[in-house]
Design a protein around this nucleic acid. Structure first.
Length: 295
DNA sequence: ACATAGACCTGTTGGC
DNA sequence: TGCCAACAGGTCTATG
């Protein structure tokens, strides 16, 4: 489901009501998520105050007063929602409850004397959580590549990674060790913005001296711009993505190529038609007319 | 080292 | 309308 813009949108939605709140109690569903819940998760979280609500790549990072950090990955279909309504005891959040179907984790919170809940829902259970002492040493975060927003991602850095390799650029950019946070939608969108065909071998984006070619510089700029535009639009809502406050993202209305096979290319002056191919088992969308084979 | 396929899950969509 | 195959925003593992 969520790529970096959606996760950042979730983070921004959680922060106002989660940062500073105290976790009174936690309930976990019986099914677990992609991995079993951490040992004694509920007991380890109870009584903690959430001090920070951060993000790294597609991970949410909840910094706790105990010094530990709760990592949360949304997988394909994970979502958070607040429930400010009066909370009946016992919990109405059960896997079998119709209203709470696929609710797997409930945080009962209080802040400034008011009680409310934060609920994690995940139909496919590809998401997961982990509770760690030091996020920097978590195996989930340790191998991640540079954040694409800010200064960590550079064309020079990518050039060093790409030199001499024949891997197609689309699957290369989906590799979280190369760039952290891109997913299937925004890779296709960034490649279109940069005019780079998704099948292009990454080594051809680097010159003989190992420096980034202009196309690679353009690609880095395109990655930044598409992610920034998507965050500004509140992410993309394809099926069920919502902000924690229930709002829908609307960047899906601005896709230039994703899921637009057979439609006209949106680049001014281009008469091309968007094509769909499969790379590494994932759909890629691009315009054969304006995304050139080489620089 | 690298590429692809399969696995994990459930829900939705499109074709017949 | 029903049935069924294909597909979905992610990522790990196995296998060539």
């Amino acid at each position: 489901m969520p790529e970096l813009p959606e996760v950042e949108t979730v983070r921004r939605g959680l922060e106002p009501h989660l940062a500073g709140a105290r976790i009174r109690a936690v309930e976990t569903g019986a099914a677990g998520l992609r991995f079993p819940f951490p040992e004694n998760l509920a007991a380890r979280l109870a009584g903690q105050r959430v001090e920070t609500v951060g993000r790294r790549a597609k991970y949410l990072l909840f910094g706790l007063s105990s010094g530990e950090t709760l990592l949360s990955h949304l997988g394909m279909t994970g979502s958070y929602r607040f429930d400010f309504a009066a909370l009946a005891e016992p919990s109405r959040y059960r896997d079998t409850d119709k209203a709470g179907k696929h609710d797997h984790l409930v945080f009962r919170l209080d802040r400034d004397g008011s009680d409310y809940a934060l609920v994690y829902n995940d139909p496919r259970r590809f998401g997961f959580v982990d509770l760690v002492a030091d996020p920097a040493r978590s195996p989930f975060l340790a191998g991640l590549g540079p954040e694409p927003l800010g200064n960590a991602l550079t064309a020079t850095g990518l050039a060093a990674r790409f030199a001499g390799r024949r891997t197609p650029v689309k699957p290369a950019l989906l590799d979280q060790r190369v760039v952290a946070g891109l997913g299937n939608i925004y890779v296709s969108e960034a490649l279109w913005r940069a005019g780079v065909v998704p099948t292009r071998p990454v080594g051809t984006l680097v010159d003989a001296a190992g420096a980034p070619r202009p196309d690679l510089e353009a690609l880095v700029r395109a990655i930044r711009s598409v992610l920034e535009d998507a965050i500004a639009a509140g992410g993309s809502t394809l099926k069920d993505f919502r902000h924690a406050d229930g709002e829908l993202g609307h960047f899906q209305h601005r896709f230039d190529v994703y899921d637009r096979a057979g439609e006209a290319c949106r680049r001014p002056g281009c008469a091309g038609t968007i094509a769909r191919i499969v790379q590494s088992g994932r759909a890629s969308y691009y315009c054969p007319a304006c995304q050139a084979e080489s620089g």
